[in-house]
């Protein structure tokens, strides 16, 4: 059971990286929107795991994407940020509930799940585009990119989420 569980996460990691770099990095919707669906890995990752390991995994995930897309370590910086902030975001969305043993993502309401995902995406994209554009003179450009790409990411993540969600038991 335990090995099964790690296996699932490893497979998920590899598949999401490949889907991201081979499909979504080439999408260029409207010329600039490349949704970042790999955030789903951090969204799905079990709640009760060791936090340090989670941040480390976030870094690995980000750096893997960075290698493929020649973006230095920008993806890594954004993924570790959301990996670090995830407990705070979860506490904000789900209340103290999420620290209990019986907490499951699939037991929460749809609205909560969407808020949680949206917050992860907003933080991630904000860090990402700020580092990518790297000038306050282009603040509007940053906001525009965060908004446009964020919306696309959210929609695609929700679609993916409903396609591959763990069935309610």
């Amino acid at each position: 059971m335990v090995s099964n569980y790690y296996f699932l996460n490893v497979i998920r990691f590899i598949l999401l990286v490949l889907v991201q770099v081979l499909v979504f990095n080439k999408l260029n919707f409207f010329g600039f929107i490349n949704p970042m669906v790999y955030i789903l890995f951090l969204y799905w990752y079990p709640v009760k795991e060791n936090r340090a390991a989670f941040i480390g995994l976030g870094f690995l995930l980000g750096i893997a994407i960075d290698f493929f897309s020649d973006t230095m370590a920008i993806h890594a910086a954004s993924t570790i940020t959301i990996a670090y902030m995830r407990p705070a975001i979860m506490r904000f969305v789900f209340g103290v509930n999420f620290e209990f043993q019986s907490f499951k993502l699939s037991n929460t309401t749809r609205a909560q799940q969407i808020t949680y995902l949206a917050l992860l995406i907003i933080v991630h994209h904000f860090v990402f585009f700020t580092l990518e554009i790297f000038s306050l003179a282009n603040f509007l450009l940053i906001l525009k990119k965060v908004f446009a790409t964020g919306t696309a990411t959210l929609i695609l993540c929700l679609l993916f989420g409903s396609l591959f969600s763990v069935r309610k038991e």
């Binding site: 340090a52 230095m72 370590a73 890594a76 910086a77 570790i80 580092l131």
Partner: peptide, 14 residues
């Protein structure tokens, strides 16, 4: 501390 360390590494590269 881990977060700060990894962040410094990424920012350094970037």
């Amino acid at each position: 501390l881990l977060y700060v360390f990894l962040m410094i590494v990424s920012l350094g590269f970037t």
